[in-house]
Amino acid sequence: MNQLWTYFTAHQDQILGWARTTVWLAALPVMTGLALAVPCGWLAHRHQAVRTPLTSGLGVLYTIPSLVMFLVIPEMLGTRILSPFNVVTALTLYTFALLVRSVLDGLDSVPEPILSTATAMGHTTRQRLLSIQLPLALPVIGAGVRVAAVSNVSLVSVASMIGTAQLGQLFLAGNNTSSLPPIVLGLVSFAAFALLFDLALLAAIRLLTPWRAVTR
């Protein structure tokens, strides 16, 4: 423990800078991926012809190793290999691929009688989606968002292999110097961030679905 604290205090400014970068590298793709996944998931829910090709294609996308993605994206976009934009783009694609299925499953979980009642009451398709389907699907979608957020925290560390400055650099520093404290500090940091992301999302989901607490 003393060695960890000594290493942290000796590199405090750099580590805190890496921590800030790690947070937004992990969080921004979740928000962007969710924003893209909701309309695509709804489209797959509405049209059976779209469902299978879309989910199958995104399933293949999710299997691409993250390191390969980090190396391919700069070639496709013409960005610098060290640009954080490459990491954000890759993680957004992974998040999108994961959350389309979550949105689809969430919308599928809404009971049909509720939708029929809403239609009978004069709700338009848009009103039904925003006021009934998405709120009722939120627990399922939220579970997918929690998985995506924790996965992104882990995948950010892989970006250190291409030189992106974030907490994953601690692993390289420990490996290059055969020193254990930076490696342990990196493990603790990523585990802490993953836990904090998960708890924050869980609290947000509970706040947005108060009826579930009443039901319980």
Rank of each mutant, 00 (worst) to 15 (best):
A137Y: 00
L155V: 01
L134V: 10
S157W: 00
A148N: 04
L130A: 11
H123V: 13
G163K: 08
I162E: 09
L138C: 10
N152R: 02
L129N: 04
Q127K: 14
P139H: 05
L136C: 11
Q127P: 04
T124A: 10
V140R: 02
A149R: 03
S131Q: 14
A143V: 06
A137H: 02
L138S: 11
A149V: 07
P139K: 04
A159G: 08
L136W: 01
L136K: 08
S154L: 12
P135I: 05
T164G: 00
L136H: 13
G142P: 03
A143D: 05
P135L: 06
A143L: 10
I141C: 00
M161G: 10
A159W: 05
S160I: 11
A149K: 07
L155P: 01
T124M: 13
S154W: 09
A159Q: 03
S151Q: 15
N152F: 04
L134C: 08
Q127I: 12
V153H: 00
T125C: 06
V158F: 06
L138F: 07
R126A: 15
A143Q: 10
V156Y: 05
T125F: 09
I132W: 05
V158L: 10
I141E: 00
M161D: 12
L155K: 01
A137F: 01
P135R: 07
I141H: 02
S151Y: 07
A149D: 06
R128K: 13
T124R: 12
P139C: 13
G144W: 01
T124I: 12
V156F: 03
V147S: 09
